[in-house]
Structure formats: structure tokens, C-alpha cells
Nucleic acid binder design. Sequence first.
DNA 1: TCGATCTGTGTCTATCGTACACCTTGTGTC
DNA 2: GACACAAGGTGTACGATAGACACAGATCGA
Lengths: 236, 236
Amino acid sequence: MANEDQRADLLWGSRNKPARPPRLALTVDRIAGAAIEVADAEGMASVSMQQVAARLDVTKMALYRHVASKAELVAVMIESAVGEPPNLRTVPGGWRPRLVTWADLMRETWQRHPWLPAATTGERMTGPREVGWTESAVAALTDTGLDGGERMDAVFLLSGHIRNTQSAETAGTQPWTAEKHLREILQEHRERFPALHEAAQSTNGAPRDNGWEFGLNRILDGLEVLIKGRRPNRAR
Amino acid sequence: MANEDQRADLLWGSRNKPARPPRLALTVDRIAGAAIEVADAEGMASVSMQQVAARLDVTKMALYRHVASKAELVAVMIESAVGEPPNLRTVPGGWRPRLVTWADLMRETWQRHPWLPAATTGERMTGPREVGWTESAVAALTDTGLDGGERMDAVFLLSGHIRNTQSAETAGTQPWTAEKHLREILQEHRERFPALHEAAQSTNGAPRDNGWEFGLNRILDGLEVLIKGRRPNRAR
DNA sequence: TCGATCTGTGTCTATCGTACACCTTGTGTC
DNA sequence: GACACAAGGTGTACGATAGACACAGATCGA
């Protein structure tokens, strides 16, 4: 009986709207994918269990069958979004071009998923891919004469710069990056902030990259000073 | 009658527990102060209208008589916590010692209020004191030959480093700063992350400052390279 | 065919920011 | 001195959040 109904449905139109839609099984990957879609489109703040569930046409509680908590979901999102860490051993020219390549790749990834900076803060679970990216960068500094702590500090410095420049979160941190609103305030109180006002004047029209190139070059120059000083014989 | 009761209270014990406690008037400053206390003690995540109100022995809705929104409250907290920006003109030795002084002062402030990094992210209202700190640093770079954009990028780079190293938020960003838990994972998968593992080995026991000194010196060295190249004649 | 095991649903609670209708209380005016 | 009014604090309500827990339907092995 029910069987016959189903057949009739199949014959007369249920192909477009099946009685029981052959819903794809919920999996961690599908959930993470939906969450990433939400985050890409509307930002990390919109990633709630309900939003993600709605996108999968499912109850929010269903997600908890596959994911222990929202924190775990975010962790899976991150691992999925960062992708496989790069292999820099094929990049010629030593540590500096390798770090530049690494930074560019990381920047690309973070631009593709602007929510990554916001998601990768605070105490959280860290996945193998994320650690792999760090491994890549630390490995690029192997022959530099820097000790372990210095190598890790250098990578932290560099990735921190990427975070700061890429993050929509920290973008509003400095007066000149913010809205016109703040520019107006600066204009209005220019006698109170003369150096800022003057600096802002002499930079109008310049293509702003949030200080990305500038900071990257400063950091690498600073590392180079240290590294050259560390192995004075084979310098260059 | 009621009057007599009150008098009796006054005579016989109400001095310790007055019938109507002479509650301090609610003011923006008192609210911000209470909020800062909560944030200092329990972190930014615990700063809710109810928590703050409870500390003042008042309903959460009472706060809205003095503050338009939570965002505004946070803005006032920040302005109050950062304090007056420093005057660096008295610091001798040129731009570099001035920036070091500025960075140290900023670091002190942020250590006193560990929630500041978390609070000063994202789109938000910026107050005059906060802008004043930036003004200080930009002013320190006046005679360096850097153009306006470069001066601002340099300050952004430096303050970003402070944010990254001071922030409890980004502290867990790198594998080695995190809990033993992650250290164990690193130990367990050491064949997968050889460079990280080796670097972690050769740094054990070293006093960790989250890369603060290292990054500061690299950034300043990098700036020095640029500045010296910018004014080759009066180099020093 | 009959359980057992998955997997998704529905209902519930606590907490969040905040809107809105009160009520109380101190103050200025007639 | 009575009274109206405004300022400031209270109580209730709403929608959104994360998540606990009991249940229902399907699927699969014995």
C-alpha cells in the first residue's frame, strides 16, 4: 500500500519532489563544509549551530551526533580550510625566499577564508594541518644558525603579522584603517594628533595593503640582520 | 509610625545595616570600573551586563540608563584602562629608544589588563586616549625619513606584535605556547613534525616571553635597515 | 521476526543583549 | 507646603545562543 503510493509518486511527479527525499547522510565533512560556507558568506559570527543545521536542512541537535561541541566543529572547519601545508624544500634561494613563499601561501589561504583569523584565536584544539604549516616555516629556518627558540619566535612573529594584516578583526585596530568616520574625527582634532594627521595626509591615495608588504619586509630584514650576525663567515 | 520605626532602627542597629542603604549613585565611571574589575578578574568573556550590574548591586537594565549598549560600555572600559598616552619627547636617543619606551609602556598596560587585546578587536568605537597612543608612536618616527604611510605601517607592525604576544587570545596560536597536551601530541608525532620537534627540544627551559623581546628586536632592526638606507648621508 | 543500534527530532534550560512599561524618588514651581 | 515632572532603577518579555536529554523511526544482525 504505502509501497504503491510510493510507486505512483515515482511515476507521476515524485521525481522532482520525492516523498522521502533521499537525504544525504550527515557527515562531519558535510557539516564542516556547510559551516565554512556560512563563515565565508556571512562571517564567523553567523556560524551558529542553527545556521549550519538550517543550511543542511536538519535540526541543530542532529549536528551533535557527529560533533561533540561547537568548538570541535570550528576545529574541523579550520583543518579543512587551511589545506595541506606547503613543501618549501623545492623553493630555491635559502630561508628568505622560502619564508616569503610560505607567507604568500598563508596569506592567500586566509584571504580565501577571511574568518580564519577570528577562528584561530584563544584556547582551542589544534589539528595536524595547522601544525604542519608551522612545521614548514620552522623547517625553512633550519640552516640559519638560529637556535630552536629563535626559530619558533621568528615563525610566531611572521604568522602574527599575517594574522594582524589579514584579520578583519584587527583591521579596525588602527585609526587610519577604520571608516571615514574616524578620519573625520582625526581631521576634526588635528591639533590634538598632529603627527597622525600629517602622516595621514602624506599617504592619501597610496594603495593600502594594511601594512602587509611593509611589515613583511621589515621582519625579514630584521631576521637577516640577526642571521648574518650569527654566521659571520658564510655571510651573504 | 514608619518614621518611628526608622528611628528605632537608627538607634538599635540600623547603623550597620541601614533601612535604605545610601547607595552610591550609578555613574558611567562606576559602571566602567566595575566592568574592568570583572574583566581583570575573570576575563572579557565574563563581562556581561548582568555580571557588571550584579557587582554594583543593581539590575542589568539600570546600566542602560548610563550606557547606550554593551559596545559603548566596552569602549569606555578601554579608554579608562589604557590611560593617558605617554609623552616620548623627553626620551633621549632618537626614534629607537622612544619606540622601545612606548612598547614597554604599552606592554605594561596590556599586562595589567589582559583583556585589552580581546576588547580592542573588530569594528568598534575608538576613543581619544587610544588614538593618542598611536599619535605618540607615529610622532616618534617623525625625523626618520619615512613617509606618512610607512610611519603608520611601522606603528601598526609594532602594536600588532604587542597584541600578538600579550594577548591571551593569540597565545594558544602556536603549538609550543599551548598546553602540555599539545606538547605531548608533538612528542607523539615527532616524525611528522621533525623541525618543530627539534626546535622544541633545543628550547626547553628557556624563559619564555612569548617571543616578545625577539620580535621587538627584529622589528626595530628591520626598521633601522630601512631608515639608515633612507638617509645615507647622516647615517649613524 | 525481533531486538539493538544509529541517527535525527522535539522539548527544555540557562545565559546573552536589549526593548518597554512601570514605579519610586528627589526637585523645582506655584 | 502641595504638586507635577523628570531622572533613574525595576520587572517582565523576546529572540538568539549552546547544549542536555528523552524519544522516534529506520536499519541491520541474529
